[in-house]
Structure formats: structure tokens, C-alpha cells
Amino acid sequence: MKVLITGVNGFVGGYLFSRLKTLDHKIYGLGMEPSSPYNLDEYYSVDITKKFQLNQEFDAIIHLAALNRTTIGADIDSHIFHQINVEGTRNLIESCGFSKFIYISTAAVYARDDEVITEESPIAPMGNYAKTKYEAELLCQKLIPHKKLIILRPVNISGAGQRNIAAVPLFFERALNHEALELSVAPSKTIQLLDVDDFAKAIIQCLECSGSGIYNLAPEDSMTMLQLVTKILTLCGSKSSLILKVDKEEAPSVICAGKAGLKINFQASKSMNQILENYYESRKRGTKG
């Protein structure tokens, strides 16, 4: 199978490349960097915000490339989010032929008014990242035949090698340095983590299945933000102070991946405690990925 991974040089892209390569697929990569550290069958150095042509036909495209800033760096101009996440997706779709297109969106597109969130729950994205990811979903549905399109809405992906632009590695960095941790959301806010290996397995399931559709990707368990930060502080034996910036209660709300379990045989293998413990061990070993 000829598979194109956009954003191949990123945290998730690297994991996905290594898993797919063991299955003897021909792996093509696309990124903004001049070259890739991975042994790809071909690499395209492309700025997706500008129109381009790949002159290739792929069995599958896995579209990971995106500007992903939620709270850290969230003050980036909305125009830049739109150019990368929406127009970049349009340019990719128009650049080549493909039999299957797997678009990686986010569970942040949902309103969080219900205790259990399914694919049928109301949509109400907040912030530039979630808004443009949902706009790109709609664009994919407009430009790509339904039978060719899979949209995945994962919760927070986490694992060894993740940079400090994501909440979990940033919390660990500050805890290990005994620096103050600021919690800028309600302590009772629900958070779910998906191990990067479990995410890669879900992608492989999508490549092997013949169906299409929209699927949430999430573990069965969850934590409150206060429980998450407390767990990290305990693991690190940290003397960091915890500063609570928001003083309010938030009702529990969890993303359900039951549909993905039925349709693409997805099941998260690692609990949130295991993800955090494994990440801590990787930091102690100095693991980069």
C-alpha cells in the first residue's frame, strides 16, 4: 500500500511512520522541513498553505499536518490557523489522487454540555484550533466522496518525545524543575489522554478497514485536571506549588469511542495512569521518541 503521511516529521508522524514501516507499506512523507530523518520511499518538502502538485496516486493519505496550539501559543493570529488547517487541507486534497483520506481532527470540536459525548453530540468548537479543524472537516466532506473519507476525533495524544507545547509534557517539565504549576481551567474539568501507540494502531485499523465515517478516539477512563496535575507532582516528587487560576465547578464530560470500537475495532490499551507513568519513566531515561 502506498501511504502518504503529512506532518511526518512531527511527534505523532514519527510514531506512525515506524509502525507502518514494519508492515511493509511504501511510506511517503510531507513536511515543511527541507528533509526528513526517516527512511521514507519519498519525501516532499512542501508549504501546504500554497498550492502544490505531487503528481502521485496514493492508496491512502493520513493528514496529520496542522497548526496545533490550544492554550500554549493560542494567541497566534486566526488567519494563520485558517491558512494551515483549512486552506492547507484544500491544497492537499487537490494536489494528488487517492483511494482513502484519513483526516485527523480533534475531540475539541464538541460542546461539552453532556456527560457522555458521542459522534452525534452537538458541535461547538472553542478557539482558533478547534474552529479551523472543524471547518476543515466540513471541507473534506464537501470535496471528498463519502466512501473515501475517514475523520478521526482523538482526545489529547500523549507519549515519549512529545514537545513542551502540549499540557502533559509542560506540566512534567515544570514539576521536575520544582516550578509553580498554573491551572488555568476549572480543577474539575475532565481530561482524557490517548497513548500515541494506541493512536497509531487506530490509524492502521482505518487503513485495513473498508468503511468510512467519523470516529472518536479515547480511552475508557478519565481524570479531572486537578487529579492529573496531582498525579504528575507525585510522580516527580515535586516541590512545585499549584496555583488554581479558576474557581468554579465543571460537570464531568467524557468522550466515548464506542463507535470506533464497533466499526474499526479500536480499543485503547493504556490507562491514563499508565500513560503518565510511562511518560515519567521516559523523561528519566532521556527518551526522545
Rank of each mutant, 00 (worst) to 15 (best):
A74F: 09
A74I: 04
A74Q: 12
S78I: 08
S78V: 01
I80R: 07
I80M: 07
I80D: 07
H82Q: 11
I84R: 08
V86A: 01
V86N: 05
E87C: 08
G88Q: 08
N91F: 00
L92Y: 01
I93K: 08
C96H: 01
G97A: 07
G97W: 03
G97V: 07
G97I: 05
F98L: 05
K100A: 04
I102F: 02
Y103Q: 10
Y103K: 07
I104D: 03
V109Q: 04
D113F: 10
D114M: 13
E119G: 09
E120Q: 15
P122I: 06
P122C: 09
P125D: 01
M126R: 14
N128D: 09
N128I: 00
Y129G: 03
Y129T: 03
A130R: 06
E135Y: 00
A136R: 02
E137N: 11
L138N: 12
L138F: 05
C140E: 00
K142C: 06
K142G: 02
K147R: 10
K147V: 00
K148Y: 03
L149G: 10
I150S: 07
I151V: 14
L152D: 03
L152P: 04
L152G: 11
V155I: 12
V155C: 11
I157N: 03
S158P: 00
Q162I: 03
R163K: 15
R163H: 13
R163A: 14
N164V: 11
A166Q: 12
A167L: 15
L170E: 15
F171I: 15
F172A: 04
N177I: 01
E179F: 09
L183R: 14
L183V: 15
V185G: 08
S188G: 08
K189H: 15
T190H: 05
I191K: 11
Q192T: 10
L193I: 12
L193V: 04
L194A: 11
L194S: 07
V196K: 07
D197S: 08
D197W: 09
D198G: 03
K201Q: 15
